[in-house]
Nucleic acid binder design. Structure first.
Length: 509
RNA sequence: GCGCCUCUAGCUCAACGGCAGAGCAAUGGACUCUUAAUCCACAGGUUCUGGGUUCGAAUCCCAGGGGGCGCACCA
């Protein structure tokens, strides 16, 4: 059977429904269409056969009959999952299902592997995550969720551009670790013979662009952090960073809440969400509260960066918060907040004003000594964003970097290094600037109601497959060390045969 | 890294110390309005691996492997 090189589609499943939704039961439209997609279900009835064709806009029924369909026998023998192109008149069956009455059809791709249980789908995480192409067909809602992510990113770009922001691309390879405190991945460039870090944040390059006159700039940056995996962490993730000259962190709070509300309204039609079984309303304005006030509220204790270190350690002990000898007052207060308060905040809430000690890139607070103008947006007990009035003073920045470098020398691999090119840029003058970083994956999790980051990443980071094997197959292959390599390769081919599937209502987005 | 849970047919799952099963998929057949179509027939297994206990192990124990969740680190 010859597979064509192209196929002319005149209507998507969704378009067929839109154009012909008014047909009465048993009525024929008199209009022909060609449609294409995967055959997901098949119902045979003697000399009639019904098939459910799915494309990425939805589903439409194929209605075949021995008296009007070419190669009717072949049609009834199509394995589920086959890509089919079909041509025929749009009709509504007597039982009320809008259908393409198939005159001619052809296979556009064979499905040598099935999609498993057509009703229950596939639940094995190994298959769902490693073979996302299978998951997308087999499990309801997966494709719609992934498409929603795509639309969220697209809407974010459009919205920021409407606010006068310009998108840029800055280097992924960084010679100096900076812009955040995190463990980097390292690599090496041979021709230059230099070690490089994969970026943990685009922050410093973006602020250099503000120095260069890009007054409102943003990047949707894939960043990399060499840390653990969890339902909320993937080693590579997507961070939106935006910087606006002449703005402070208060302006950035407004930008954040307006963006989140805009996305929710556009994608879901409302800012009132349900997440993890609880109500969540993203409508602005979000609550603003200082970090120390929230600690007082949730831990029942008043703290201040001016307090005696011994007293703060005692408070940490009282709340079961471990501390280290070299932790200063600011670090202790942050630890206390993170252990006792952050997870309790359902939000959305802007937690404002952090200790200077733990914020090397944020500007001194205009009225609170020892604090900086920084906020984190907390939603559902998690950090959604982090933003500041940016530190613009090169001397102060150098002192903060040197303090970071000291911590690095003491063994803190997450601490920043002194970034001389960045300091040189600051010496050219960074105007007052507001900066913001939003974890886009977490924002999409909120919008899709998913509680695992892997549910909104098409291909999350996983342990690599071995010879195409996973799980116990791999164990067996390794165990059978007496076998030849060829045998293992054959086993791999068989093991890869695990297939999958299910039914899926139309996930029209 | 530590703790808990889990691994049975292509998929989803039963059997919980006594003959390893069902639904779906696949295969063969019946059926001119189906909707997870239905009906009949047929086929499908190293119960993750290795060891142990037992008259007898998918089941209990030990070790290893894969996966999940939680903790820690972090966004």
């Amino acid at each position: 059977m010859a597979i064509p090189y192209r196929f002319e589609v005149s209507a998507s499943a969704n378009e067929v429904h839109r154009r012909h939704g008014g047909l009465a039961d048993g009525e024929e439209s008199g209009q022909g269409v060609t449609v294409a997609g995967r055959l997901m279900l098949r119902r045979e009835q003697g000399k009639l056969a019904f098939g459910t064709l799915r494309d990425w806009t939805g589903e439409v029924q194929l209605f075949a009959g021995a008296s009007w369909t070419g190669d009717f026998a072949g049609f009834t023998g199509l394995p589920l999952g086959t890509w089919v192109g079909a041509e025929g008149e749009v009709v509504r069956t007597r039982r009320g299902e809008l259908s393409v009455k198939v005159a001619r059809w052809q296979v556009l791709a064979e499905a040598r592997r099935g999609f498993g249980d057509k009703w229950r789908g596939v639940s094995d995480p190994e298959v769902r995550l490693r073979q996302r192409e299978v998951d997308l067909w087999a499990n309801e809602g997966v494709r719609g969720r992934m498409l929603l992510r795509s639309r969220a990113i697209s809407l974010t770009r459009r919205w920021l551009e409407d606010q006068g922001f310009v998108e840029v691309e800055t280097p992924v390879f960084h010679p100096v670790q900076g812009g955040a405190t995190a463990k980097p991945f390292t690599t090496h460039h041979n021709a230059l013979d230099v070690d490089l870090f994969l970026r943990i944040a685009p922050e410093l390059y973006l602020k250099r662009l503000v120095v260069g006159g890009f007054e409102r700039v943003y990047e949707i940056a894939r960043v990399f952090r060499n840390e653990g995996l969890s339902t909320r962490h993937n080693p590579e993730f997507t961070m939106l960073e935006a910087y606006a000259a002449y703005w402070d962190y208060g302006d950035m709070m407004r930008l954040t809440e307006e963006l989140a509300a805009h996305l929710a309204t556009e994608l879901l039609g409302t800012t009132s969400l349900t997440y993890a079984g609880r109500d969540l309303d993203l409508a602005p304005p979000w609550r603003r509260a200082t970090l120390v006030d929230l600690v007082a509220e949730h831990a029942g204790v008043e703290v201040d960066v001016g307090m005696d270190i011994g007293q703060l350690r005692g408070i940490c002990d009282d709340h079961g918060v471990p501390w280290k000898e070299h932790d200063g007052p600011g670090k202790l207060i942050l630890e206390l907040y993170e252990k006792t308060t952050e997870g309790q905040l359902w939000g959305p809430v802007f937690v404002c004003d952090y200790p200077k000690e733990v914020s090397p890139l944020a500007r001194d607070h205009r009225s609170q000594p020892g604090m900086v103008e920084r906020f984190e947006g907390i939603v559902a007990g998690r950090e959604l964003c982090n933003a500041f009035s940016e530190l613009v003073d090169p001397d102060e920045q150098r002192a903060r970097f040197e303090d970071q470098a000291r911590q690095k020398a003491e063994g803190d691999i997450e601490a920043m290094a002194v970034d001389e090119p960045y300091l040189r840029a600051l010496e050219h003058g960074l105007p007052p600037t507001g900066g913001l970083g939003i974890g886009m994956d977490r924002l999409v999790m909120l919008l899709t109601g998913t509680e695992s980051i892997r549910d909104i990443l098409l291909f999350p980071t996983l342990r690599p497959e071995f010879f195409g094997l996973t799980g116990h197959d791999k164990a067996q292959a390794v165990d059978s060390s007496s076998r030849s390599a060829g045998t293992i390769a054959e086993d791999a081919a068989q093991a890869a045969d695990s297939v999958v599937t299910g039914t899926v209502p139309p996930d029209v987005v």
